[in-house]
Design a protein around this nucleic acid. Structure first.
Lengths: 250, 250
DNA sequence: ATCCTTCTTATCAATCCGACAATAATTGGG
DNA sequence: CCCAATTATTGTCGGATTGATAAGAAGGAT
């Protein structure tokens, strides 16, 4: 940036950051992937107080010279042992959580992020516990939401799931939970895993087809007809897919 | 909360918040209202360095014992002089901005909020400048987005406008820019102001009517037929209204 | 060859959409 | 009082989209 006037440079040199209300800033990660047709979240079990033994989201402090997005990418590797060297994980900011009492130890504002990992539907990438955690493992999201979690992490996980479910109505973001090339059935099963429902195959294809690009290749499945492989074109789906709603909107 | 075990209480009493990377947390406000069929934003002109004389969003520090949402409501009153004693302003969190260099003075993470003020379409509520500002005034959003703003506030304002424009497709959030009771034409003019476009009246009515509740009352306009008064009801609009898009989705 | 499984395409009535026209309810002016 | 002007509301029409369901196509297995 070349916006510095003489007066402004002078001001900045004289400026002394004083005792402004100082708050620790962290990132918490909602890391999602699909296996066996079920949406899973990468969660850690807390090894120390508070909330010892309870499930929590992976996360950690934002370093002095990094943005929240950079911190999210770094903590994803550190806290879960996931090495995304090649795989391009989709990371987007979710929301910030700032209740003064959300952490009993000290004042912490957390910038939550949503992370989508590609998976072929079979085995999930292996996890290894980070610093503060006793263990890290994948848990079925819709089941684990029934039980309590550490801090306000149940709320964050719920918000992350709702964000993903909602965005899948009008974007092709679901493709980030699949390899670069995928079949229509794979994509539909991602929708079914996240929305926790069943979708008619024929109508799903009709609606989704205009928003995908055919590669020309086909799968060689063990049984049944071969399926065409597609890649997602990042675009808006309009009108959106319809998802049966439970309650009113926020 | 009654989750404190003996071991946990013991831990918390012994816990000493040490020198964790400490960052100042602020809120920035995108305050919007409609007047004369044009969407306006409440902006301040900076009275001191850096970015002296440039337009900026109102905002301020989050106090040690308040959440970001509470801080947003407080700063809305302090920085703009708006007293929302009676009027229920709609406040929702937008996103957080955490680039380490976004403020040249010190490390500041800002939790941006979107604020929608009700207006009858005529005069906008009066503004008065707060502490850090030389003046506070309403500016037409679509025009002011063409010129630069202080810090990353142009980005925040753009994000806020896009959030509102998008959410208006599938919710009745636009009603928060109007009094509790409003006519179909008033609501349509809010859509036209935010989307910066024209909408056919007949089709708009057909699409919106199921999501509003008729009060039975009517307006007494100076000229033309009287219009029915509605209140906003159902929150999800499905399928959504269609807005002509410019670029791909995020 | 025939069956089974899975992917893909087709059909059909009901609904919804954009474009546009017609009707209704007022005020103001001759 | 009657008519033009203005604004709100309702109606119409062909085309597109939807949900439900079925038919067709492409393999492998028996």
């Amino acid at each position: 940036m070349s916006r510095g006037s003489d007066a402004e440079r002078e001001f900045l040199e004289a400026y002394e950051p004083r005792d402004y209300p100082s708050i620790a800033v962290t990132v918490d990660l909602v890391v999602l992937a699909v296996a066996q047709g079920v949406l899973h979240a990468a969660l850690v079990r807390r090894g120390g107080h508070p909330f010892k033994g309870m499930l929590a989201l992976p996360g950690g402090f934002v370093a002095p010279r990094e943005s929240a997005g950079d911190a999210a990418a770094r903590e994803l590797a550190e806290e879960t042992g996931l090495d995304l060297g090649g795989l391009p994980a989709h990371i987007e900011q979710l929301a910030s959580y700032s209740d003064p009492d959300r952490d009993p130890r000290m004042r912490v504002v957390s910038v939550a992020h949503l992370v989508l990992l590609a998976s072929d539907g079979g085995a999930l990438p292996g996890l290894s516990a980070g610093t503060d955690a006793a263990s890290a493992a994948w848990h079925p999201v819709h089941a684990v939401l029934e039980s309590p979690m550490a801090f306000d992490h149940a709320t964050i996980l719920r918000d992350g799931l709702e964000r993903l479910a909602g965005k899948m109505e009008y974007t092709t973001v679901a493709a980030h939970l699949l390899p670069a090339e995928f079949t229509m059935t794979q994509l539909r099963s991602v929708y079914e895993a996240v929305w926790d429902t069943q979708l008619p195959a024929g109508n799903f294809t009709r609606k989704m087809l205009p928003h995908l690009a055919a590669t020309g290749r086909k799968t060689q499945p063990a049984v049944g007809a071969p399926a065409a492989l597609f890649t997602a074109e990042q675009r808006h789906i309009h009108p959106p897919l319809s998802r049966r709603r439970t309650g009113p909107a926020g």
